[in-house]
């Protein structure tokens, strides 16, 4: 119960961050919040339903690695976009071309 509500709170805070932040890096940080919360919820849910700890852990580990790869690509995009356009605010990306 505690974990479920806590993770839901963290997840929805992540949603809020993604919706309100104008900065790409902060949006990515919001996505990290959602991923982290979902991962904890995943492990907790599986364990409370009597799942095998090792299977759960390996699953969560794979999620973790994929999320890290996503973050790396995201950061590379941000930095490259910044170097091209000198902007990091999402609203402004539409106004520039190339």
């Amino acid at each position: 119960m505690i974990v479920a509500i806590g993770c839901a709170a963290a997840f929805s805070l992540g949603v809020y961050a993604v919706l309100t932040r104008r900065d790409v890096i902060a949006i990515l940080a919001g996505a990290e919040l959602m991923l982290g919360a979902a991962n904890v919820q995943l492990v907790a849910f599986a364990l409370s339903r009597g799942g095998d700890g090792a299977v759960v852990s390996s699953f969560a580990l794979i999620v973790l690695v994929i999320a890290a790869a996503e973050a790396a690509v995201g950061m590379a995009l941000v930095v490259t976009a910044y170097r091209r356009t000198r902007r990091t605010l999402v609203d402004e990306f539409g106004e520039v071309s190339g």
Binding site: V3, A4, C7, A8
Partner: peptide
């Protein structure tokens, strides 16, 4: 965001008991 929270908490809260550590 609040809607997401309410939805998640309402759906998951009752079914997800706190896990016993394995």
């Amino acid at each position: 965001a609040l809607g997401v929270f309410v939805l998640l908490a309402a759906v998951l809260g009752p079914v997800a008991a706190d896990p016993t550590p394995v």
